[in-house]
Simulated scan of single mutants.
Amino acid sequence: MKIADLISWFEAWANPAWCESWDNCGWQIEPGVLQEPARVLVCLTPTLAVMQEAIAVNANLIFAHHPLIFSPLKSLCGGEAIADMAKLAFTHNIGVYTAHTNFDQVDDGTADVLAQILKLQEVAPIVLTQGGLGYGRVGLLEPFLTLQELLTTIQARLAPPNLIFSPTADLQQKISRVAVLGGSGASYISAVVKTGAQAYLTSDCKFHQFQESRDRGLILIDAGHYATERPACDRLVQKFRSLNLDWVELSQEDEDFRQFFQ
């Protein structure tokens, strides 16, 4: 399958027109690879390390969740990460394509994969956008779990380096309804409360957002940005493999950008 055909297939599923006005979905760098057979390296975040990996494995497309170019550029200077990536992309004929907030909304996107990992039932979006799709997912745990069991399950299935949760007096509280949203989801706390969820798995939550959730009767669980979004990248690799591409793999150079002192 040619890269142009792969992108057409993807955009029919996760239309880049659905991305938010502040976002930057679609082609970040297209050095003239559209008619090439697709050799795809999927990653969460496009970095110089991922570009070097793409060069090493002879990939011609980096398919990323996070945008490479987020704010309008005023210059490109050697020694800066984006400029160096652009130089390498054109030198080695490697495209960089991003699916961000459009990928967040769809079935088998970032939130939906989290819901599947937790085996939620009767799943619906936290906030509807179009055609039954939307941001986040909320559903039922069957069977119910205690909070302790839910936290243990999240730790086992997502392997976050640090799992943070709201203060609670009872780890044996039964949890039946859970909301999930990969990446930075604290701005959806009010919407989650309206769904009747008892616990909300997301990331990048601040001190006062934990306070707000506690005061509103919602258990906030922060598993980190990387741990909550990387699984959807793995799912994307599986979907691409079903298309019989020349080559597709998940990046081994993706970074969490954080370390925790033990």
Rank of each mutant, 00 (worst) to 15 (best):
M1L: 11
M1N: 06
K2F: 12
K2N: 13
I3H: 02
A4K: 15
D5L: 13
A17R: 13
S21D: 14
W27K: 04
E30D: 14
P31D: 08
G32M: 05
Q35R: 06
A38E: 09
L44M: 06
T45G: 00
P67N: 05
P72Q: 12
K74D: 06
K74T: 11
S75W: 11
E80I: 11
A83E: 04
F90T: 09
T91C: 13
T91A: 14
Y97G: 02
N102Y: 03
Q105A: 04
Q105P: 05
D108K: 14
A111E: 02
V113R: 01
L114A: 04
L120H: 01
V127E: 14
L128H: 11
Q130F: 10
G132M: 08
R137M: 10
L145H: 13
T146A: 11
E149M: 11
L151D: 05
A159Y: 08
T168V: 15
V178F: 04
V180I: 08
I189H: 01
A197C: 00
Q209T: 08
D215H: 09
L218Y: 04
A223F: 00
T228Q: 01
A232Y: 02
R235E: 12
R235K: 15
K239H: 11
L243G: 01
N244T: 09
L245S: 09
D246I: 07
R258F: 15
Q259C: 13
